[in-house]
Design a protein around this nucleic acid. Structure first.
Lengths: 242, 242
DNA sequence: CGCGGGGTTGAACATTCTCAAGAACTGTGG
DNA sequence: CCACAGTTCTTGAGAATGTTCAACCCCGCG
């Protein structure tokens, strides 16, 4: 289960002076409001790393001095408790970033970041980012916005875990997935394995199975093959008691 | 229980043009690195509000355009689920601030802020803060640091709720309290009622009682009167299974 | 003195986890 | 294209954990 902790080889770094994909930076919401010349200034500050599937970008306890931007592929963020239990925190897609915590805080990662597939990462060193923020304060404000969003999500999630039962967590998760999709569509495709979903929602795969069955039997949803789920009664899902 | 939702009177605002306590702003970590003249510039931008015990500063769903800094008193932040269950998120003490989420995000509060006793608040309008951050980017970076810290805490807490049992949550909470105190001391005073503590830890007062008893019977702690708890076996608490 | 809130304790109940077994699926190499 | 190995997923049954509700205690306060 926690074989990931064991693997202890150093980062398989494949570093070049500049980010090979010149468009990487411009895809990132933090920067995409900038002028073209500012953008290319930033591009010149980035480096890159290539990760193979299962490679670990950083571990809890690692020191950090960089912001990591996903260029292509997917990055899985998770934490591990002393007990050995693991919890999935987030999956980063192209354009999303991580490392912000260690950047502004005590420079120690508290989570693990692992490539789910072959993944390209753009790196921006803390010192360079700091200079950027001092020079272009709008960047800092953009990052603030993003952090504020994540904080909101995280607090809502903590509250959900603290109070709501698994049924409700799943229901709200499904509705959250719906939001991403077009509002007219009533079908979502869960982007995670049940195992990962369980880890994300703080429960077990067995319980996920059972609760989805429960939701189906009560005509809230229909399970289709390929992780697709049709939402029959959105309002019903929202108002599950407790 | 949720009488707070019912009370619907408007904010009992007692507003003056400037913050009456000139030292209010300087106590806040976000600003305390600034020069004296910058500080007084900020002081001139703030307004103030006085809250009586049980007054509500803002509710979930309220629009927001201000940063609120606690000057004196205590402010209780909590959220309420559709089911009516309430969860204590944080208690703000003098010098701490809230409103940052609504500031940078979609300007809608998602939590409730209620005065636990007579409380004085300094207010900084979003537009003014924005100008400040553009003028003095270090302020934005300070706020970033603070948000990054809160995000870390929140994620750790969400993980705890997702995976750990109540025993463990209480144990870690106690140890967290210890950190605030001098390291040589082994006694903490819980700053919350058991009811609030239960709400904070996502459980019930009954369970808190029972678990504290369990911890005492197993010689991890000793309960004294007045919410004081002596920690006998810090390492033991840290390594409670599951 | 009586009232009310917080805190404790007990017992029944609900929810979820664990463990185990089997089914369904995936990818790999022949 | 098939067989096999390794997963993931489902289902069942028992056990663990925590909640609920009700009774009671204690204490401060009008």
């Amino acid at each position: 289960m926690n074989s990931k902790i064991q693997s202890n080889q150093d980062l398989p770094i494949c570093q070049s002076e500049k980010c090979p994909d010149k468009n990487c930076v411009s895809k990132v919401p933090i920067f995409n409001h900038l002028e073209a010349d500012q953008m290319s200034e930033i591009k010149d500050l980035t480096q890159s790393i290539s990760l193979k599937k299962r490679d670990i970008l950083y571990r809890a306890g690692d020191t950090s001095d960089s912001l990591y931007i996903v260029n292509s592929g997917r990055l899985r963020l998770y934490s591990i408790l002393d007990s050995g239990k693991e919890r999935l925190l987030q999956i980063l897609h192209p354009g999303e970033f991580t490392g912000e915590l260690a950047l502004f805080d005590e420079s120690l990662h508290e989570v693990y970041a692992e490539a789910m597939e072959d993944t390209a990462i753009c790196i921006l060193k803390q010192s360079k980012l700091n200079n950027l923020m001092l020079k272009y304060p709008t960047i800092a404000i953009k990052i603030l916005t993003e952090l504020a969003n994540r904080l909101k999500r995280s607090e809502a999630q903590a509250t959900l875990f603290a109070i709501a039962k698994v049924e409700t967590r799943i229901a709200l998760y499904l509705i959250d997935c719906l939001k991403d999709v077009d509002h007219i569509v009533d079908e979502v495709t869960i982007p995670l394995s049940k195992k990962d979903l369980a880890s994300y929602l703080g429960t077990t795969p067995e319980t996920i199975s059972r609760k989805l069955l429960f939701l189906e039997e009560n005509n809230y949803i229909v399970q289709k093959n390929g992780r697709r789920i049709q939402i029959l009664d959105r309002d019903g899902l929202l108002s599950l008691e407790s």
